[in-house]
Amino acid sequence: MAKTDQAKADKKRQQDKERQRAKRQRDAEKNSSLGIREYRVTLSQTEADALTDLCAYRGGVEPYGAAEFIATLIRRDKQRMEDEKAHLGTCDFCGEPLPTGCKNGLGIPRLKGVEKCFYTRDEKKLRL
């Protein structure tokens, strides 16, 4: 009888594995079709504690989930970036559009260090 019970348990485990594999596959296909991507983030204990505190504080009555909080931060920072871009205009020194101007297409600010250049005066304001 023990062999029969073991065989049943093994069969059930195998069915559970297959069911989970199929569910992961369906979820992956659904997320892919919706354009959803999953990212893994490694946080220190301090960062994890801060995330927990922020989720509770910013969530109102119900705390945010970590994924919801991070997605909200991304959406808000994207809007902030768009607002900043709209107000940047062009560099007063070289006349190129900001924030990509002054880089001469090479990704390296060619006039950095010149007092009137955007990259000398204001580029750090765009960083987080």
Rank of each mutant, 00 (worst) to 15 (best):
I108L: 13
G95S: 03
R26W: 05
G107R: 04
K8N: 06
G35F: 14
L111S: 06
R127Q: 14
I36P: 02
P99T: 04
T90L: 04
Q14T: 13
P63W: 03
M1R: 08
M1Q: 09
L111I: 12
K103N: 09
I108F: 09
D92T: 14
A7I: 00
D53R: 10
A71M: 10
Y57S: 09
S32K: 15
K112L: 11
V61P: 05
R37T: 10
R19L: 09
Y64D: 01
E123I: 15
Y39A: 07
S33A: 14
L128F: 15
D16I: 07
K30H: 14
P63N: 03
L73E: 11
A2W: 06
G65K: 06
S32E: 15
R13C: 00
H87S: 14
K112M: 04
R58S: 09
R110H: 11
R110Y: 15
E82D: 15
M1H: 08
I108Y: 04
Q79N: 08
A2E: 09
F69E: 01
K11D: 08
S33F: 14
G113T: 10
Q25T: 13
I74K: 02
Q15K: 10
C91T: 02
G59S: 01
V61M: 08
E115M: 07
A9Q: 09
T72N: 11
K23V: 13
N104D: 15
Q15L: 06
A28M: 07
K11T: 12
D16L: 06
A28K: 05
K78F: 08
L128Q: 11
K78S: 10
R121N: 07
E115G: 08
Q25M: 14
P109D: 02
L111W: 11
G89W: 04
K30A: 10
L51Q: 02
L43P: 03
A56P: 01
D10T: 03
K125I: 12
Q25S: 15
V61E: 14
A48S: 11
R127Y: 14
L126I: 10
P109Y: 02
R26C: 03
K125S: 10
K85H: 14
A71Q: 14
P63H: 03
R13W: 01
F118M: 03
Y39N: 02
R58D: 04
Q20D: 12
E29S: 09
E115T: 12
Q20H: 07
S32I: 07
E68V: 09
I36G: 03
Q20P: 01
L43F: 12
F69M: 08
K30Y: 15
R26L: 06
D49I: 09
L34I: 13
L43W: 11
R19I: 13
Q45A: 15
K30E: 08
K3V: 06
G89V: 09
K85T: 04
H87M: 10
T4G: 00
G35D: 05
I36C: 07
V114G: 00
G105Y: 06
K12C: 00
E82M: 11
A71I: 11
C55R: 00
R121E: 03
L51C: 04
M1V: 13
G89F: 02
E96I: 04
E29P: 00
K11L: 11
G105K: 02
E18R: 07
S44P: 07
K3N: 13
R37W: 07
E96N: 05
G59Q: 01
E38S: 15
L51D: 02
T52K: 06
E115I: 10
L128H: 14
P109G: 03
